[in-house]
Amino acid sequence: MGTKEFLDAHGEKITLHQEAHSVSCREFSVVCPKLSVRSVTSCTCAVWLAAYAIFAYTQNTLVLSAAIICTICGLLLYLHFMKIDQESLLLIGSLGIQLTTSFASGKESTVFIEMCRVKDVVINEAFFMQKVVYYLCILLKDPTDPKEISEIVPVFQSSKPRMDCLTDVYRSCQEILSVKSHNVATMD
């Protein structure tokens, strides 16, 4: 449907893609800021300079090779497990909600929550470090008592979009969810 630019909680630019596949199926994906070359270079340089200083002091070449291996492994691990590239929320009105997190290395982790477990989608506020941040979350029903909430699943956890972006997503989600709940009500 479109691409919009927003700011995240730290003031960096993120982009929100919205796509409506059909009336009751929408996909939102938030693209996190890319890894900057500057920070990678500065980190690597810092490690290597430290290693070189130790090498100059001890005259042991093992330190240099260890530093190289450490930086390479650290970068790989960072890209594979920590750097999140994109987070997406796929809402299929009749089936459920799917949350996908894609890492910079291409690894994807997916969680699918069935519609029968979803109670609602809300925006919540929370303390994060010394700030108040807003986040979108999915409330899950308690299987024993459908009136109660058993779990809260936060969405867009790593990109932390600001309120304006969240309200956009929230409105679109509620459009689909309200149709569904209306249907359930009429069927009952």
Binding site: H21, S22, C25, E27, L90, I92, L95, Q98, T100, T110, V111, F112
Partner: peptide, 23 residues
């Protein structure tokens, strides 16, 4: 652990197409 869905190509006027894969 569950399933995951992948969106396939869509065409207006035709039903929504999804591919269900195992997670």
């Amino acid at each position: 652990a569950g399933v995951k869905f992948r969106m396939l190509e869509q065409q207006t006027g035709k039903p929504l197409r999804l591919l269900m894969q195992i997670n």
